[in-house]
Design a protein around this nucleic acid. Structure first.
Length: 574
DNA sequence: GCCGTTTTCGGCCCGACTGTTTTCAGTCG
């Protein structure tokens, strides 16, 4: 079967290749758009073409349509292969360095014969870049710093590391004299799971003075650049932070602008243009250049004839059309969460007892907590032997009897063994209040085997929840190969809930798949997978994933009271 | 590359900052 993801990757790579060739930027955008369309495509590619849906899709015209048909027929795109052969591979590496774009990268390759990042670093140290036209000592120094950045961090950071830092920076700035307001913008505000840098927007009567302040902020290691409205700094942990300062009346428009995403803005600005308006980072202007006041973001969208679009949805994935048509979902919030199903205790690899975890859950205003320690095969995590299962159950019953207003559930995170069977026999599984099934071993199975394995586990009537469906660890390990489309379809037919593992190191199910799950009729559960009381707060990251995935409270099992939630996790037993 | 009841050609989002320039290209978001 032709893989639409592969074709999406090909088109995305064509876009990069064209950029390296200095092609028309709008042609490049056409390929980027096509890649996104394919990534988000519902159903398979053959059907997309055969049904005529492709021909009706805006953004795919004659040339791209031909290439899609070629891919379906031959499994390849000749144009891509020719391009790839004509563009040196090293250029792909070079443009990942901040400050290096296609033009300069090409010069380095052609004039200095640079064939790798290592060679570029060496050329900088030999002071050979300064002789090139358009280059100078500062560019060379900047490139050296950029190489260091890429080598140390691959240029990416976890949301969990960036978000608190960003909030701290905004709070500090807001406390400075002359500063009206400060707020976190950028991909952190959109709650992307990994981010490149921190963006903060500041309102001040004297913006230039406000940007001056940034250098004095605690944790700032170096000032990378400074203009009248923007300061870029590097923080001690290696992250870059941009602070943009505007007049108070420009704050909402600026916050919107710097929240992005780029794709969202492109869509909005096209729409504005149709209405004879112009959007820039300072506000909305009429055709005659009159600046219209934008008191807040809701007004901003209203002026464009749109419902308010939450930051998490601003990815250019249909949210503008939905806002125009009044079909945006009401997104779930952290306040909707009434309890969680997946935590570990001292019975396996957690650091707190069930009583301590329950107390921490109550402090957070929740009414229930599922204790789901590891099963026996997970020896590395001190998985529960059968005797311990009984012991834990007695402890949970004791706690429930003592605290009638809070419900502890005796559950298990049961390993899915390599053949798709479960780690305990059915008669043991039947004893648990509910069962979460997860893969913790044999990650290297083929995609087909892994998909069969997981689906077989979901077919077990005691399995209420599929845990962390891909096993990925962000910035550390890709998930195992698995056909998530097939897993989601099987979740729907078997009535299995899919977990949104809220550990900020996992965030698995990915938000990009949440919408698909919802449309397929699958319920999800936001679970912290906490191994300590403080980690219950991971739920905020899981809620962020759900929101990015267009989910409402009704799509999430643990927005319901205990009895109702339990019934959903046990519905396959009926 | 795509798109179009104003257009089949000429548009396609918009601006800041840097560094290397004597008026602007490249990069970034």
């Amino acid at each position: 079967m032709a893989d639409k993801q592969e074709l999406a990757r090909i088109f995305a790579e064509v876009a990069v290749l064209l950029e390296l060739k200095g092609e028309n930027p709008f042609k490049i955008r056409a390929y980027e758009t096509a890649a996104r369309i394919l990534e988000e495509l519902d159903g398979d590619l053959e059907d997309f073409v055969a049904s005529g849906r492709m021909d009706a899709t805006k953004g795919i015209g004659q040339a791209l349509g031909l290439k899609i048909r070629e891919f379906l027929a031959d499994g390849r795109v000749k144009y891509f292969e020719e391009l790839k052969a004509a563009v040196p591979a090293v250029l792909f590496e070079l443009v990942k360095i901040p400050g290096l774009g296609p033009k300069k990268a090409l010069q380095l390759y052609e004039k200095l014969g640079v064939n790798s990042i290592g060679e570029l670093e060496y050329a900088c140290r030999e002071n050979r870049l300064v002789a090139l036209p358009g280059f100078g000592a500062k560019t060379q120094e900047r490139i050296l710093q950029g190489i260091d950045y890429v080598k140390r961090f691959q240029g990416q950071f976890l949301l969990v590391d960036a978000w608190p830092l960003a909030e701290k920076a905004a709070a500090w700035l807001e406390g400075q004299p002359g500063v009206d307001r400060a707020a976190v913008a950028g991909s952190i505000r959109r709650r992307k799971e990994t981010v490149k840098d921190i963006d903060v927007v500041v309102a001040a009567a004297d913006p230039a003075a406000a940007t001056e302040l940034v250098a004095a902020m605690p944790g700032v290691e170096a000032v990378l650049g400074r203009g009248p409205t923007k300061t870029s700094v590097r923080l001690a942990n290696g992250m870059n932070m941009d602070v943009r300062a505007v007049m108070p009346e420009e704050f909402a428009a600026a916050l919107h602008h710097f929240t992005g995403s780029k794709e969202h803005h492109v869509g909005l600005r096209g729409l504005a243009k149709d209405k004879g308006l112009k959007i820039n980072e300072y506000g909305i202007e009429t055709a005659v250049g009159e600046r219209l006041p934008v008191p807040d973001e809701a007004a901003f969208y209203r002026m464009l004839g749109l419902a308010y679009i939450e930051p998490e949805l601003r990815e250019g994935l249909g949210e503008i059309e939905a806002a125009a048509g009044g079909t945006l979902p009401e997104l779930v919030t952290a306040r909707d969460i009434q309890g969680v199903f997946h935590v570990h205790t001292t019975f396996s690899d957690g650091s707190a007892t069930p009583a301590e975890m329950a107390a921490a859950a109550r402090e957070r205003g929740w009414g229930y907590l599922g204790v789901s320690d590891h099963s026996r095969t997970a020896v590395y995590a001190r998985g529960l032997r059968l005797e311990t299962v009984a012991e834990q159950r007695r402890e949970i019953e004791r706690l429930n009897a003592a605290n009638p207003d809070f419900r502890l559930m005796a559950a298990i995170e049961c390993d899915i063994l390599p053949d798709g069977s479960l780690d305990y026999p059915d008669e043991v599984l039947a004893e648990f209040d509910f069962v979460i099934a997860s893969v913790h071993s044999a990650f290297r199975q083929s995609e087909a085997d892994m998909t069969r394995r997981i689906i077989r586990a979901m077919e077990n009537r005691y399995v209420g929840v599929l845990g962390h469906p891909t096993g990925r660890i962000l910035l550390a390990r890709d998930g195992y190969g698995v056909d998530l489309g097939a897993v989601i379809a099987a979740a729907a037919t078997t009535g299995t809930v899919i977990e949104i593992n809220a550990s900020p190191y996992r965030l698995d199910l990915d938000w990009r798949w949440c919408r698909k799950a919802k449309e397929t009729g699958v319920l999800l559960a936001v679970n912290p997978d906490a191994h300590a009381p403080a980690e219950l707060d991971y739920v905020r990251y899981g809620v962020a994933v759900a929101r990015k995935g267009w989910l409402s409270a009704a799509d999430i099992v643990n927005t319901r009271p205990a009895a109702e939630a339990m019934a959903l996790l046990r519905r396959k037993r009926a």
